Simulated scan of single mutants.
Amino acid sequence: MLKTVAAALIDHLAPFEFGVICEVFGLDRTDDGVPPIEFRICGERPGEPLRATIPGVMFTPSDGLDGLRDADLVALPATHVREEYPPAVLDAVREAHANGATLLSVCSGAFFLGATGLLDGRHCTTHWRYIKEFEQRFPEAKVDPDVLFVDEGDIITSAGTAAGIDACLHLVRRELGTAVATTIARRMVVPPQRDGGQRQFVELPVPECTADSLQPILAWMLDNLAADHSVAALARRAQMSERTFARRFTGETGTTPHKWLTTQRVLHARTLLEESKLGIEEIARSCGFGTAALLRHHFHKVVGVSPHDYRRTFAC
């Protein structure tokens, strides 16, 4: 049961991500039928203001770290990523977890949680921009870069910013039921549950090729996405054997001609979904997929949602 929630604050915290935690767990919604939740704002030195990531904004914890000790949930909002985290706060989070608390991190708060060592051997996530750095800092953690949040039972980690809303509402749904989660979501004017993962929000750059001999081929392929590009035909255009072309292509782009071309077609489809009024069948043909069914298959595999859902979210 979720009766007591404690937010653990440290210097340079992100206001929006902290606000998400306050919005879901800190407001009194008993008039709407939401069970009462005791909400604590905890810091190493209660009463001492902590800086936010926005200059001039300060937050002052009202409770000390002992407020984490018997909490049902300890929430770690996003903060500036740093080399070291306050040892006393890390110890308090570890102690709360040992006492049975569920831990929740939002966005870069995963680094704060990772510094406790409690993510070692666990599945987790964080904002897509931090994935590589996170993997380097915490190699024992099992990072999933494609999801909005990961529920490991006693530890929940979320991706960037708004994904914190998804994770918080998921936890409410898990602990207090669907009706309560829906009530809170309605008050926040957000969907109770979103489809897809953070892949749909990631900028997918066109893979670069450093070999001068392949640049004209890549440019030609991009200009002719609707054409049927076989390795044999591409090798002839590059004046190489098929084996040499395939080896050179993989060595320079990091992937096979087929996978590279499929990704470029999906990227082009994504642009058309955002900026054009073309139907799915027309987009499929113009991108070289031929049929809407094939477009849906590859689009969902790369982006994580269907073309229809992507357009609904991102169309101009």
Rank of each mutant, 00 (worst) to 15 (best):
V106I: 15
P205L: 10
F112R: 05
F149T: 04
F149V: 04
P145I: 03
I155Q: 13
V180G: 02
P145M: 06
T102S: 11
K132A: 14
R194I: 05
V143F: 05
A238Q: 08
I131A: 02
R237D: 06
F201I: 13
D91L: 02
V190A: 11
P216M: 06
D151A: 08
L104N: 11
L218R: 02
H123W: 14
S105I: 11
V93G: 03
S158M: 09
A185I: 01
Q198V: 15
V172I: 15
R199L: 14
A232T: 14
A110F: 12
I184Y: 06
E135L: 01
R237V: 03
T182D: 15
K142W: 03
A226M: 04
A163R: 05
R129M: 14
E140Q: 15
P191G: 01
H229S: 06
S230H: 11
L113I: 05
E133C: 01
R187V: 10
Q239H: 11
S105T: 12
A233W: 04
R237T: 11
A232P: 00
G197V: 02
A110E: 11
N224H: 15
P205M: 06
Y130D: 14
D151Q: 03
G160F: 03
P145V: 03
T157C: 12
I155G: 13
A115V: 01
D144V: 04
D195C: 07
I217S: 09
L204A: 03
